[in-house]
Design a protein around this nucleic acid. Structure first.
Ligand SMILES: Nc1ccn([C@H]2C[C@H](O)[C@@H](COP(=O)(O)OP(=O)(O)OP(=O)(O)O)O2)c(=O)n1
Ligand SMILES: [Mg+2]
Ligand SMILES: [Mg+2]
Length: 345
DNA sequence: TCTGGGGTCCTAGGACCC
DNA sequence: TCTGGGGTCCTAGGACCC
């Protein structure tokens, strides 16, 4: 036994690695996964790129055509979520086969809590087991809370182990940009810069009142905690219950016809409805999202008046009623439907 | 090179009630 | 009467992450 440690496991180049598993001849080549895999078509982006492709500057979220320009010799593959889901489940099962607490956090990562004397030995064993059982490589961060463990895994990439705790937090992170912290994105980073706060150390020693004035009481306090390398230590092992489910489509060409738009929403609503019924969940709200060609993207939502439903027809009808709230006099590039789910069943 | 799809959580303002 | 707070529900949007 020993103290409690918090580890973060994050798979390397996850969806690209899963593709390489089923096509071993791709190993060592630049691989780009995204959209339908055709890098000449617009309105598609990179889900992930193998490290070989990243060497050419290809990144998640980049338009597929931009990736093609940067790396025409890459192998472009369509995204195949069910296969990634299955691979993810094998990884999580492997982690859970150890005498540890496991909190799944998305497709390709998990927090692991364990009371051990030697967290490095545990991390090495976990890494080895995941590789042996699934063929997938991962990095593991060793920390004293979720903040440190998560960032440690980043330093471990690819395929390594790194330890970040209160002992080395400031030495390692102090001079790095505050935007590298998990939860600080571009907008928050820009606001911090306006306050003259550039590094993690700047933020960690910032005036609490100034932060609260700029960010509000909650976020202001949280930013300080984050920059000091503090964070949650609780591992929730219970399976995650989804709060919502959504389906959206960017069309290859804009829709302009009202009937066509309504038909698109109906299709999405029915697909979603079928999945919900399959999952045995009840729907409380139905939301519709419309992205116009300008990229203006309003959302409208309706709480179901007659209470939670499992009726696909009710969901579809609600989506079409919500669609009425939009002025559809401009070209539409994306339609989406989201359902919020009852949390008490 | 114009900008995917699937999620979560937080905030703010108006309605409505006391 | 010309003036209050507070609480809760509801919707819209922002921000972030994988
Ligand atoms: N904008 C993004 C980011 C990620 N993903 C998907 C594809 C990734 O493979 C997976 C995991 O995300 P990570 O951030 O963990 O990235 P990778 O696992 O691909 O690479 P890394 O080795 O850096 O973790 O999530 C996505 O579809 N779109
Ligand atoms: Mg990963
Ligand atoms: Mg990840």
């Amino acid at each position: 036994m020993g103290p409690w440690w918090l580890l973060h496991v994050d798979l390397d180049q996850f969806v690209a690695a899963v593709e390489v598993l089923r096509r071993p001849e791709l190993r060592g080549r630049p691989v780009v996964v995204g959209g339908d895999g055709d890098p000449t078509r617009a309105r598609q982006v990179v889900a992930t790129a193998s490290y070989e492709a990243r060497a050419f500057g290809v990144r998640s979220g980049m338009p597929l055509r931009a990736a093609f320009r940067r790396c025409p010799e890459a192998v472009f593959l369509p995204s195949d979520p069910p296969v990634y889901e299955a691979a993810s489940a094998r990884v999580m099962a492997t982690l859970r086969s150890f005498p540890v607490r496991v909190e799944v956090w998305g497709w390709d990562e998990a927090f692991v809590g364990a009371e051990v004397a030697d967290p490095w030995a545990l991390a090495a064993d976990l890494r080895r087991a995941v590789l042996d059982k699934t063929g997938l490589s991962c990095a593991i961060g060793i920390g004293d809370n979720k903040t440190t463990a998560k960032i440690a895994a980043r330093f471990g990439k690819p395929g390594g182990i790194y330890e970040l705790t209160a002992g080395n937090w400031m030495a390692v992170m102090g001079e790095r940009p505050a935007g590298e912290l998990w939860g600080i994105g571009p907008k928050t980073a820009a606001k911090l810069t306006e306050l003259g706060l550039h590094t993690v150390a700047d933020l960690a020693t910032a005036d609490a009142d100034a932060l609260r004035a700029r960010f509000g009481p909650r976020q202001g306090a949280w930013l300080l905690v984050l920059a000091r390398g503090l964070g949650d230590t609780e591992i929730v092992t219970e399976p995650w219950i989804a709060r919502s489910r959504s389906r959206e489509t960017t069309y290859p060409r804009d829709l302009t016809d009202r009937e066509e738009i309504a038909a698109g929403v109906a299709v999405l609503a029915r697909e979603l409805g079928a999945e919900i019924v399959g999952a045995g969940r009840r729907v409380t709200h139905v939301a519709v999202k419309v992205r116009f060609a300008s990229f203006y993207t309003p959302t409208r939502v309706m709480k179901l008046r007659d209470g939670p439903t499992t009726d696909v027809a009710v969901i579809e009808r609600a989506a079409l009623i919500v669609l009425e709230k939009f002025r559809l006099d401009r070209p539409v590039r994306l339609l989406g439907v989201r359902v919020d789910l009852a949390m008490d069943d």
